[in-house]
Design a binder for these strands. Structure first.
Lengths: 234, 234
DNA sequence: ACCTGAACACCGTTCAAGT
DNA sequence: ACCTGAACACCGTTCAAGT
């Protein structure tokens, strides 16, 4: 018997160096993002976290954009598809329930707006994203939106929600972005009826409403547009 | 007379070192972008082009986002606001003319989609952008869109157009992004009626249409939505 | 006031070489 | 096949010092 021979320490002593895997990389990425923000989720930083060199990650991910898409797909598990599930009843009609699903999606993105920004470039394509697409399509179907319009509408709806969140990315972390938003606001306020009659006529109303109110109106607007806009015959 | 004394060479000999100025910096930035793409328009590269150190630029620009916004403002001079000018007649009704203005804006962004991407974070606020806002508002007014809806609508319309262009940024320069779009397309094609009944039912129609057709439909959709969606009373 | 060299603290990605 | 060290070719931004 060799029972007293030293156990293979290197395997059990510390969890120190778990084998690399796509899932492990994405999990680590999500952890770093939650702790320090997306701007810290870099190939180099991740490699360091996983105790290897950056080149190793390229076995699993083609580039940084793909990494960001993978993170988003992960977060999309938190989107509440519930409102889309009660077919026929549920709280409110299909429009309200569709707006609720999209608002839930937007809220997830709002927690990490720079991720929304990435999502415009590299969309996820995993199970969570597909479930979201399916939920939106189901509600459009329930509302009697013609298939052609629904097929193109799902894209605009998700893109709109993504863009709204992405726009916040500037406002958020960047202290200067506030100034830039302010710069536009200032410019709108500063013009004259002679130069820009309509801007002057609407005045402060151009900047009115809370982000929540505007989000709700925008979602209703795009839903209504999808409902009433026929696709070209050709 | 001192006519034979050497002229102050340093002033005329070479244009070598023109004084820095906001306009000079932005013009140089636009030139570099046209020649090599936005990804080459960095503070360091620009400083090199202007024969100085990067720190000098921070006298005129707070950060890179502001630089990109300034470039966009410059390019916006090429947007065709013409369709918005004939009040009443012109080619087509107000809806068509509004869609034409927005399509022109989108086409400018399409030439440099990564600029569109930046535009979601830092919007320009210069005269060209204001003229665009005014033109959109004027057309909404002509169409009898209630002021409240117009005030919020101009934002969605421009944001939508911007997002459409921004999304192309991935497809363009990044060879991998094609795969990512393909990844979503593949995922949509690969699912089953059991898992995702609506995705399966719509099938290829989800990916149908040329970018131009989709753009036209999307703009009509958001215009129609703006027209028919009342703002909340509160 | 305007301008700058130099430094700080990082990046993504590729390649040749190892196991 | 999977993994890696090292290198290549860059970044944004700040600061103390100059004019």
């Amino acid at each position: 018997m060799t029972s007293r021979s030293p156990a293979p320490r290197s395997r059990r002593e510390r969890p120190a160096k778990p084998a690399l895997s796509y899932e492990g990389i994405v999990d680590t990425a999500v952890r770093v993002m939650r702790a320090e923000g997306l701007q810290r989720v870099t190939m180099r930083r991740l490699a360091q976290e996983l105790d290897t060199g950056p080149a190793s990650l390229y076995v699993y991910l083609a580039n940084t954009a793909e990494l960001h898409a993978a993170i988003l797909e992960e977060l999309l598990g938190a989107v509440d598809l519930g409102p889309g599930e009660g077919p026929g009843e549920g709280p409110g009609d299909w429009r309200e329930r569709l707006a609720a699903v999209l608002a839930s999606y937007t809220r997830v993105l709002f927690q990490h707006p720079s991720l929304a920004h990435s999502a415009l470039l590299a969309r996820p394509s995993g199970p969570n994203y597909l479930a979201l697409v399916e939920a939106v399509l189901a509600l459009l179907h329930e509302g009697g939106v013609p298939d052609g319009q629904a097929a193109w509408g799902v894209d605009v709806l998700l893109q709109t929600a993504t863009a709204i969140a992405a726009e916040q990315a500037g406002r958020d972390q960047d202290a200067h972005a506030e100034d830039e938003h302010g710069a536009l606001a200032d410019a709108l306020r500063a013009t004259t009826p002679e130069r820009h009659p309509r801007i002057a006529a609407l005045g402060a109303d151009l900047l009115s409403g809370t982000p929540e109110q505007r989000l709700a109106w925008i979602l209703r607007t795009v839903i209504n547009g999808t409902l009433v806009t026929p696709r070209p015959e050709a």
